[in-house]
Every structure is written in C-alpha cells, then in structure tokens.
Design a protein around this nucleic acid. Structure first.
Lengths: 219, 219
DNA sequence: TCAATATATGAAGGATCATTCGTTTTCGGG
DNA sequence: CCCGAAAACGAATGATCCTTCATATATTGA
C-alpha cells in the first residue's frame, strides 16, 4: 500500500545485496507459517527467525520491532489484493454491468480465498495493529477502481454513484469475510457467491437510471 | 450462547452468594474497559482485577484462566445480540417481506453499533480464542429465527429457502461488520444501512415465487 | 588481493505475565 | 452470637518474550 506508514512502523533499512532480499522474503514467509501453525499469541520473534533460518538479530536489522514486521506483511498482502481487483476492474471498462459485477466479485473472492489460510493468518495478525492507514489506503484504491469502472458502463448511469459504490463494496467485502470466517463447506460458499453476484447486479440495475434502449420489461 | 463450551474454557465455579455475583459482573465490566483503554495485548489478569477492584486470586476463583474469561464475555455478548434479533424476527411473523427485512437489518445493526466501542473491543478479544462453537451456535440461532420468519411471509414463497436465508444473513452480518470496522462517518453509515435494506428487499423479492394477488407490475 | 561495507549471529538484559496457594476476611444459617 | 463455608487476598513462582549489542562472517568494488 502506498500509505505512508506511521513513523514508528516503517522498516529499518532496505536490502542492498541480493542475499538480504532473500532473507527478508524468508522472514515474511516464516511469519505466515508461524501465524498459521502456532497462532498469534505464539508468534515470537525468536520463532519467526528460527523458522526463517536466520537469527533474531537479523530480523531486527530490517524491522525495528515485531509490529513493524506485521505491518509490512499486511501491506504486502493488501497490495496484492488491490492490484488484482484493480486489474479486474480495468479489464471491464465499458463492459455491461453484469460483466462488471461478476468480475468484481470474482476477483475479490478469489484473491481472498485462493490461499485462504494466509488470509486467515493475516486477519489475525492485523488485530491490535495500528493499520488504519493501511485499510484506509486500500479502501481508497478500491473506491477509485470501481467508481471508474461503473462510470464507464454503457448501460447505466448512477444518480448517486458514490453511495451506490460504497454500498457495493461494503456488501461484497463484508460478505466475503463473513462467509470466509464461518468456514462453510466449499459447495455452500460457491452457492453464496453466486447469490451475492445476483444480488449486487439487481442492486445496480435498480439504482441505475437505465440507458438501455430496448430494455426488456413490460410486454 | 447455549453451546457447550470446550471443557477447558468453562467457568470454574458458580457464584453462590450475592457478593460474588457482583464480583463476576465487575470483572466482566472491567475486562471491557481494559480492552477499550489498553488494547488486547495489554489485557492482563492483574489489570482487569485492579480495574474491577478485586484481587487476581478472586478472578481465578471464577475463571480457570484468561481465555475462559474472554470466552464467557463473548458468550454473554452474543447471547444478547441473538436475543434481540430473535425478538425482532418473531415480531414480524406474518408481516410483509419489506417489514421483515427492515426489522432484521435494524435489529442487527443497532445491536452492533449501539455500544460500538464494546463491539469493537469484543471483536478484538475474540481473536485467538477457541470460539468456533460460539459462532456456530450463534449462526444456528440466527438461521432458525430468520427462516421461521421468512416462512411465515404472506407475500412470498422461496423455492430455495435455505440458500436465500444463508445469503441474506451473510450479507447483512458481513456488511455491518465491514462498515463498522471502516469507521465511516455516521451519516454515511446511515445511508449505507438504508441501501443495504433496499438491496436485501430487492433480493428477496427476486428470489420469491410471488404470491401477491394484485402485484404491481406491468400496466 | 584487500579494505570497506553489508549482513548475520545469539547470548544476555530487562520487563511483563499467568497462575498458584497459604492466609485472612466476610457471610449466612442455626 | 458462633461456626463452617464462601469469597477475597496478594506476594511469590516460573515461564516467556522483545530487544540490544559486541562480535563474526560474507560480499563487493577497486
């Protein structure tokens, strides 16, 4: 995320040699592993270092403290998700509303559930982390991406685009998280995802001043 | 919640005298306060006891360990929310779908945001807590309540009630949480809540085999 | 090959916590 | 009023953790 991190959370120094880049990567990976296998209350600098195959001291060369590590981890993750959603949105510029909704739901849903354990681990790591700035920046990026997409729709014009957009995103993001955390069987997840798409589409159609010439309607 | 708690999380003993009931209540209250003022990583048995005006030892007479305290706290809270939603649902038996949706969204939304700091504190406390059973029980209660309500609708029959219902709940619960955590300005929250209601209603109408005799439709 | 710089090490300091248990205080029934 | 049970107390224990820093090793460019 491009949010300037709170000063106390910024990374200590940037890797200059190749091996240190490897190290940092290993540390990130190890953090996720520990988070998954041990839970957040057993997420220890020592344990992370051990699993990463480096010493604690090394960790502290790149992250001034544990919080900074978690912050950076979340930053990376949100960045990935944001990029995917943005790409999906751009790909649908000028497409019909239905395609837009499907692409949006699919992109976000898959970004979150593809490596669901990682997502879960990060949800946990984010608690008690001063990451409001991160969330805020993520929200803004998503807002911008979907607003631009919706504006380009050939079959709809929204009188209250901002509100419609923020509602749409809240519903999609919230639902994904909720379904995700309830850990429902995969088949049910797929079904709900489909329903969600239908629901959002219906919402958008309802909110749009329709511009479709031969709109199917009353006979 | 009526979920049998994992054995290791059940309370140690039940208050027999009046003063101990007071004590337990004070401990619960103190836990919330500490959670709010200090955050979860500073939620200490000592600190809780101190704020409750009792000694640590006293705490351990009612809760075998910290986790059990947090578990009990969440249990209490979910119970309250569940009761309110259940009441709202029962009050709408036989009412038109629109009234149902409005009541459901309102009940859940208000239960969560009325004392929003408490809700926030509890979301935090629930991380790394073995509370799947709690969530599960809550979900079941909600499912039962809303299914019963929807079945009683005079103006709709749902071919796929279970799916429609689980979708509805996922969307509402998820959206509330998402809006809640983004901490949007109150005015925007109200607006989104209204949109959410509209959206859900539209979804239900769309999913229903309509039974309304003089359905307003094509001229 | 040789400094200068970057990276890695890990034992030890200092601090915080969860939990126990021997003791003291309070309550309530007889 | 008195005694056994209930409730409360809180210092001490043992464990875990974050973070530092003096030292060692690796890399790079000249």
């Amino acid at each position: 995320m491009d949010a300037t991190p709170p000063r106390h959370l910024s990374a200590r120094k940037k890797p200059r040699q190749a091996r240190s880049a490897t190290t940092v990567e290993a540390i990130f990976e190890a953090t996720i592993q520990v988070l998954l296998r041990e839970g957040i209350h057993r997420l220890t600098t020592t344990r992370v270092a051990e699993r990463a195959g480096v010493s604690v001291g090394t960790m502290y060369q790149y992250f001034p403290h544990k919080q900074a590590l978690l912050y950076a981890l979340n930053e990376r993750y949100l960045d990935l998700v944001a990029e995917r959603v943005e790409a999906a949105c751009q790909a649908q510029h000028g497409a019909p509303t239905k395609a837009m909704v499907e692409a949006l739901v699919t992109a976000y849903w898959e970004a979150k559930t593809e490596r669901s354990e990682v997502t879960r681990a990060l949800y946990r790591s984010a608690v008690e982390l001063d990451n409001e700035a991160l969330i805020e920046a993520f929200a803004r990026r998503m807002d911008a991406a979907t607003i631009a997409m919706l504006k380009s729709a050939p079959d709809a014009v929204y009188a209250n685009l901002d509100l419609v957009n923020v509602t749409l995103l809240s519903v999609i993001f919230g639902t994904v998280r909720n379904v995700f955390e309830r850990n429902l069987p995969a088949s049910q997840q797929v079904a709900i995802r489909h329903q969600l798409t239908i629901m959002c589409l219906s919402y958008l159609e309802m909110s749009a001043g329709k511009a479709e010439p031969g709109a199917p309607g009353c006979a």
